[in-house]
Design a protein around this nucleic acid. Structure first.
Length: 544
RNA sequence: GCUCCCAUCGUCUAGUGGUCCAGGACGUGGCCCUCUCAAGGCCGAAACACGGGUUCGAGUCCCGUUGGGAGCACCA
């Protein structure tokens, strides 16, 4: 086949729409697959609705998706003169004619026709009037061969077309002298030597008339491929109201570009049973012949699944890099990359479907005072859990090195020493104390990656004010009160400790805040806290 | 209303006249694993819209019905 040239031609009247993104993807992939070129053309001839801001949004959306183009972007409005010139040519040759019917007249005749149950096409009133340029306000219409059939072989829909008489002599130029969409598209596609026009099926109705324009211009039309519409859960065309349609929104919600691309490419296209397509595979395998004809619903659940799949595949460093903006949002302050956070992200990605989701789960590691799930707190941070935790803290002092195996050993020891209690009795309170939630990664893994700027061990123990409040007063004879040290501890004001933590966190730590993601070193963090706590819970909170 | 398009599990789809009592994936139910939540593994429920043809044989071809969608501008 001759040179394959596709184009993506969005109009800058909003953000990058899901449907547009898929059309862009298809055009891009088809060109890549066949070693051709993809051109970006901004259809900005509707001055009233086109904005520069939308154009920027379009470009940034495409850039984020990683859809690049070989030529452009060119603005359709730059071709105004060329469009005007073509219309004049058609006029001279008699292939087009001036029409002085006013909107009002047209509207009246149309509604009359419609009232009779017939479909309206321009009735040809000015067709033979031979109006000249000085006939007053007028539009220009294309003179169709009303006996002809305007057909094409669609790459997706097969033989398509319409009788010319069902279309009628449509306008190609407005009374203000500006060309209409159909004319501009044909001229531009032809001038740009576009070989394959890939666009939404909502353009099916335009194509017949465009074929007529090609014929009037004595031009060979390109191949057309109309791709089925993406519909929302309602079964109707995606709407801003009901459906998530902005690519930027997906990005801000924490979806990965690769996941979105994979999701989009499979809506309406398939390659056997394959579900996961890398960018390269899309380029290697995508073809128009295998595009489905029925419109398809976009299933957000499948996107979530795909997104997690790609999340899990991301190398640790890159994953954290992607996560950082979301963490920063959660923390309310800039979050710097650390090896601990990278490890945590790794742990979290098999339980998160989006980056935003993941950031929420990582909040305990970046927030000064982690929020506690009140249900979990009520259920697990009971006074009876305190002595157990105290025992664990004592035991943790001897953990060295601070790794999963040693932590497990410590937990096991405590469990046995506390009367062989179930693991859940120990792990759940710890989990809630550390993460604020009853759901988190493994209990030996979780403490390995707590907040940056503090040491692992100190961050591990941060009972909230709510927990303290839930405790009975120290004088009570309940079991925790029988442990004087614990009682003393919980009676003390926590804010002091938090201030201390904050000071430590803001200190220029030697290993933790370095930008690279080198493996955790045993001496990371401030020296003062890098060794095991000296005095149990009390010292963890208040000791110096 | 008119024109055109479409029709396989809830969703995306495989299927191009026999190899389909219809396959995969997401979702969903159960079980296993297990310190929680996941992830993972195993098992299950779940569809050819309906009616006529054509044919030895139809999810696959034809017609109709029904249902859904899109388009019908001096918008793009």
């Amino acid at each position: 086949m001759a040179d394959i040239r596709t184009r993506f031609a969005p109009s800058p009247t909003g953000y990058l729409h899901l449907g547009s993104a898929r059309t862009a993807l298809y055009s891009w992939a088809y060109a890549r697959r066949h070693g051709g070129a993809c051109v970006l053309r901004i259809e900005d001839t509707d001055r009233a609705r086109s904005t520069l801001e939308s154009e920027r949004a379009l470009l940034s959306g495409l850039a984020w998706l990683g859809l690049d183009w070989d030529e452009g972007p060119v603005r359709q409005s730059e071709h105004g003169e060329r469009h005007a010139e073509v219309v004049e040519q058609l006029l001279e040759r008699g292939a087009a004619y001036r029409c002085s019917c006013s909107r009002e007249e047209l509207e009246e005749r149309r509604s009359q026709t419609l009232a009779q149950g017939r479909s309206w096409v321009y009735d040809g009133r000015c067709r033979e009037r031979n109006l000249s340029a000085d006939c007053g306000p007028h539009t220009v219409r294309l003179r169709l061969d009303l006996d002809s059939h305007l057909g094409w072989d669609d790459l997706v829909y097969g033989e398509s077309g319409q009788a010319a008489c069902e279309i009628g002599d449509m306008n190609i130029r407005r009374s203000d002298g500006h060309p209409l969409y159909n004319l501009a598209v044909v001229v531009d596609d032809s001038d740009m030597r576009i070989s394959h026009v890939i666009r939404g099926a909502d353009h099916l109705g335009n194509t017949a008339f465009q074929i007529a324009i090609y014929r009037a211009l004595e031009l060979e039309p390109p191949r057309f491929a109309h791709v089925p519409l993406i519909v929302g859960a309602s079964g109707k065309k995606l709407s801003k109201r009901r459906d998530p349609v902005s690519v930027e929104q997906f990005r801000d919600d924490g979806y990965l570009a690769d996941a979105l691309l994979n999701w989009l490419v499979r809506i309406g296209w398939s390659h056997g049973d394959q579900e996961v397509f890398s960018r390269d595979e899309i380029c290697a395998l995508f073809d128009l012949e295998t595009v489905n004809r029925a419109s398809a619903q976009a299933d957000p659940g499948k996107l979530d699944w795909l997104n997690q799949h790609y999340l899990k595949q991301l190398p640790a460093g890159e994953l954290l890099e992607q996560l950082l903006p979301f963490l920063t949002e959660v923390a309310g302050a800039e979050v710097k990359p650390t090896p601990e956070l990278a490890a945590l992200a790794q742990l979290l990605c098999e339980r998160s479907s989006t980056l935003r989701d993941m950031a929420g789960r990582a909040a305990f590691a970046v927030v000064e005072t982690p929020e506690r799930d009140s249900k979990a707190e009520k259920k697990f941070l009971k006074p009876t859990a305190l002595p157990i935790l105290e025992a664990l803290v004592q035991r943790l002092r001897r953990v060295d090195p601070w790794d999963e195996a040693q932590l497990e050993a410590a937990f096991e020891d405590v469990r046995a020493a506390q009367g062989d209690i179930g693991m859940g009795k120990l792990a759940q309170p710890v989990r809630v104390a550390v993460t604020g939630s009853s759901a988190s990664p493994g209990i030996y893994e979780t403490p390995a990656a707590p907040r940056p700027g503090s040491t692992r061990r100190s961050a591990y123990w941060a009972p909230s004010a709510a927990w303290r409040a839930s405790r009975p007063p120290p004088t009570a004879s309940a079991s925790p009160a029988s442990n004087p040290r614990a009682a003393r501890v919980v009676a003390r004001p926590a804010p002091t400790r938090f201030r201390r933590m904050a000071r430590l966190a803001s200190r220029p730590a030697t290993g933790v805040d370095r930008p690279g993601l080198a493996p955790a070193s045993g001496s990371a963090g401030s020296p003062a806290l890098s060794s095991p706590p000296a005095g149990g819970l009390r010292s963890l909170r208040f000791g110096k």
